[in-house]
Design a protein around this nucleic acid. Sequence first.
DNA 1: ATGAAAGCGCTAACAA
DNA 2: TTGTTAGCGCTTTCAT
Lengths: 379, 379
Amino acid sequence: MAITLKDVAREAGVNVSTASRALNNSFGIHVDTRKRVLEVAERLKYRTNQVARGLVTGQSHSIGLVISDIRNPFFAEVARGAEDAAFHAGRDLVLCNSDLNAEKQMRYLDWLLAKRIDGIVINSVAPLSPAQQDQLWSAGVPIVLLNLSLAHRRSPLWRFSAAIADNLAGGEIAGNYLIDLGHAHVLHVTGPRTHGNFADRTIGFLNAFQRRGLPRPRVVYGEHTFGAAYQVAMQHLEADRNMTAIFAGNDVIAFGCMRAMMEKGVRIPEDVSIVGFDNLEMSQISSPPLTTIDQPKYETGKAAVEMLLSMMAKDGPHEPEHRIIGVRLIERESCRRIAGTAVQDRRSAKHLARDGSSHSLSAANKSVRDKPRKHSVKE
Amino acid sequence: MAITLKDVAREAGVNVSTASRALNNSFGIHVDTRKRVLEVAERLKYRTNQVARGLVTGQSHSIGLVISDIRNPFFAEVARGAEDAAFHAGRDLVLCNSDLNAEKQMRYLDWLLAKRIDGIVINSVAPLSPAQQDQLWSAGVPIVLLNLSLAHRRSPLWRFSAAIADNLAGGEIAGNYLIDLGHAHVLHVTGPRTHGNFADRTIGFLNAFQRRGLPRPRVVYGEHTFGAAYQVAMQHLEADRNMTAIFAGNDVIAFGCMRAMMEKGVRIPEDVSIVGFDNLEMSQISSPPLTTIDQPKYETGKAAVEMLLSMMAKDGPHEPEHRIIGVRLIERESCRRIAGTAVQDRRSAKHLARDGSSHSLSAANKSVRDKPRKHSVKE
DNA sequence: ATGAAAGCGCTAACAA
DNA sequence: TTGTTAGCGCTTTCAT
């Protein structure tokens, strides 16, 4: 049905191997022959069968992306970065939504391995049992994680490579920012304890208070969803009248809290300040626009795939690589200074780096006034 | 390196074909033999090489999803629906972000065809030249579009199958809703003229006014982005003081307008009402929550893949199928009734169907009071 | 520089 | 029920 290499070869009056060389190799073939083959291929609209090629080369030229849910705008950004990098390298991206469900995740992984996928970028293998993790590890496929705690380096997950934001630093930046604004009674609403990225944000945040000799803020763990955060906030807004600020584990949690505050008639930032984490696109259109920690999501996806590609390049076992991606504070309008607080020049505060580049992959952190993004949502 | 079928066969003391049958077919094989083969396969951790299988069966067991940009929350929902349906049918989803760029789109399509993809769901082939469209059409791969004008049935695009929301009805519902609330001076801010889905919304919207004998609202075409909509709104908020409502071509456009209104000190809905289209998740957390036309995005993606599957089932040329997916109005808090307007029971208005089911694939339209969604964003 | 031939791992006739 | 055989379409030695 479709045109095969044999057809092209016959039409061009050469052997299939010659035709193959003409189409692929640049040397070992006469320039005229190659030209002729190319012409015939063009005329016949020949298209290499990548499946057949894959069978012999052992490469599928595709990369798997296993995430919780693409509807999470965080992952959508990551996915775009990953896909761009993959496309650039002549590979395609297979999208898998695991819902962080261990069984489903294993089914995806099995399937990807059966397809002889070249590499896998995966949100988290934490839901898998140690045995499953071992199995995955020993499959011999390059793997890069998107979720890993920097604070728990003894974890068996550390044998995997990872591309992650500097959550530890981000949490600390948020903490210092609120402290500098004069907030002492801060509530930290975050996701599950076991989630590496969230855990690090919390640790960094608490460190900031500890280092300044301030009392430990109250931390509430829960589901990292809009609804769950809404519930938590509703509850604590009643109970804790002294609270002047909230640090949310991510922007979605922040939105849930904001919704609760709106309903309770609590004004932002007049009554309570709030800081998020992620810098989702919608954080600039919430009201008020949300002050948050930006993590380069697109860059993370891109970096993960690039790491995969370099792992694929050199075979044999490789040292795990952990790429820590810098975060920065984006000041918008959801925080205010508490009256009677000594004003201090934030530019000189030591937790703010003076790095200038915008999306470097270093762990440099900086505070920037929000400027409009070039990218915007299209349909 | 990896375990092959041959290894399993040898170990089980049978021929590869027998092993193959044991693993695949359910009949024509002795129950003991099959059990033995299965055991050996299990013990050796054998995993079928789908590439090799694909070469002989001619099926890649993957489906291509070519959309503008996964970061658009609309497409993220569609993608999730598509992926779920594909996974359910034992296929995987290859994600391609085309940015609606013709050249890029063709490169993706070529690549997918080279991978002998089983079928393609594509946002729009409109950017392609007629020659490119023909080429794609004659490739013989099942294709389902996500963008097609119901109002232009003579278009060559109509030979393709499509899964689309009832944009025509949606536009009309929005129009009638605003008319019923007493709005006569309405601005319609929408996307590019050539975009089938937007075009239909506009046509439906204008129809509503025409049928009621009302003057034609002003329509502004532009980019369907937050930024572009913001600009348009800034401009028209100054120029057109009589305007009492805006109908936005989609929610993102609505958000852009709302941002402009906020900056101009125009209150929503006290001064100006606004209706969106899409019912993105964030439309419930904007302030005020946005009244909008809901289109079942997840269902659309799911339907598109299911159509693909049924096309794949029967070979030979198939009649194009156009699945029109019902829309409905979600009333939230961004619209108000204009004083002095005759109050009329909206439930009895003829543009509101009395259908009860929630996400039917029929073209039934209905109005519902927003109830909290179960799904929420997770990271 | 080109051709002949082997084979990637699997399925699917066709025999037995 | 099982084995034999012939490919699927391509790359890649090894000869020539």
